[in-house]
Amino acid sequence: MKKKRLTAREASLISCHICGKLFRDIPVAKGKRKKCARCGATLHTRKPESLARTWALVISGLILYIPANVYPIMTVTQFGRGTPDTIISGIIALFNNGLWSIGVIIFVASVLIPVLKLVVLVLLLLSVHFRWKWNPRQRTLVYKIVEKIGKWSMLDIFMISILAALVKLGFLLNVTPNRGASAFGAVVVVTMFASMSFDPRLIWDREHDHE
């Protein structure tokens, strides 16, 4: 008999998502949760309601992305004069001032990563829904990259907190944070939760169904 490679689910096993220990999947009484006997985390064969939760969080992220870009994130006032900057206008100003190096860093962290993350998550969700033939190994890799880079979007928020605390010279030079920063911070947190709630094993489950 040819040996078939089994997944944990096919072998009626559950691995703990925190500590990785394998357990036999035994049905428990209704209303009771399966708990990991080692670390106490709740056991799930797949992340609960993964697709619905990820869709909800991705859509929230997309909606929050609008105020994050429309409202200004901070105002630099020099000699009593200054205009509020949005994320995009701040980046353009950096390029105009010749600070292209940090312009690129902020562009990647504040524009490229959040947009890429939302687009990739939507593509992954669609690929699971419509059983696309997109190479599952590639999809897993893309998912892992998106999961890893997400936190770097907080760069702008941290920078604003540093500047707001440091640049307090009144009339001479002053930095004030604005409402847009809150919306942008919310985008980052929501999209981080979105990528956490997506279960990459779903990519492989569907793949297996074709065989």
């Binding site: 998502h17 990785g20 599952p136």
Partner: peptide
Amino acid sequence: MMQHQHLIACRECDLLN
């Protein structure tokens, strides 16, 4: 619950290794 010390499930694709 039974233990499966020689096996480990992949976190990303669920395959038993």
